[in-house]
Design a protein around this nucleic acid. Structure first.
Lengths: 147, 147
DNA sequence: CTGCTTGCAAAGGCTTTGCAGAACA
DNA sequence: TGTTCTGCAAAGCCTTTGCAAGCAG
């Protein structure tokens, strides 16, 4: 995780990656790309913003949001909706599913070859499938059952 | 759908249903219950608010939100997160999944006996599964591929 | 120069909350 | 009379947007 930011050549790889997806690699975009694209991660916009500022590379909140939206539109990251209060951005773009811990907010990948979804019926007329999300929701065992 | 609100006895059934889930059946709660519990429906809080006011039963926005949260906590409805901008409340509480049309916002039930999820690996230590969400995302065919 | 980017601050949309008045037992 | 509930308005969060200044080619 911290190894990544120190590895020489990573910045160039990010630059190439951004260009190959039609994105002009500005300083801010490369900084954000290094945070989220250099390993499989699940981060909210706020977590990206914090991570960016920890590394003393200052990027504004607006740019973080705009950049993550751009990355999503260009399929560099996938938006994951598990919690109504915030979007997670997932840099693993291969087919896979998730385990979501509702207590900790932690999101874990389930590769598609482990888990299978069968029996999907016909889709409504004139519609095309764009993807299947599977979320296995869990909570910590040592939790009160009461509300 | 409109038949429901005219059927004699429905209000009493809603009252019984609320009581059986530990909910004090106030006028507003029964009104909201008749909107969302009398048939399988997927509605956002805003849609419930609109439906309530169409029928000339005025319930405030705060009460709609509070009541839907209460229904969810008492398992009368299930919260569905498919769109980061709003929560859907689903009155079908039996095990099932969803097809979500990203163009229309329409949500369609997929009964659990049609669709099967297999190969769920071990959960993280000390966690308990609370449910599995499956969302088949679709969009309308006649849509531009470009952004 | 000209167009794309950034960043601040303001605006927006959905949801929650504080609190006073109302309803109910 | 005490408790629960409602509803208004305000506040809170996350996210988007307007716009002026900055940067690149």
């Amino acid at each position: 995780m911290d190894q990544v930011t120190k590895t020489p050549g990573w910045q160039d790889e990010i630059v190439v990656l951004l260009r190959s997806h039609g994105i002009n690699p500005t300083t801010q975009r490369v900084t954000i790309g290094r945070i989220i694209l250099s390993a499989y991660r699940h981060l909210s916009a706020d977590q990206v913003l914090k991570a960016v500022n920890e590394d003393k590379h200052f990027v504004s909140k607006a740019t973080v949001y705009n950049t993550l939206n751009l990355f999503a539109k260009r399929k560099l990251v996938r938006e994951v909706f598990v919690d109504p209060s915030k979007v997670f951005y997932d840099s693993n773009t291969s087919p896979h599913y998730h385990i979501y811990n509702e207590d900790t907010g932690e999101l874990i990948d389930l590769e598609a070859d482990q888990l299978e979804v069968t029996g999907i019926p016909d889709l409504p007329a004139n519609t095309v499938e764009t993807g299947i999300d599977v979320i296995v929701r869990v909570h910590n065992r040592n939790r009160s059952v009461l509300n």
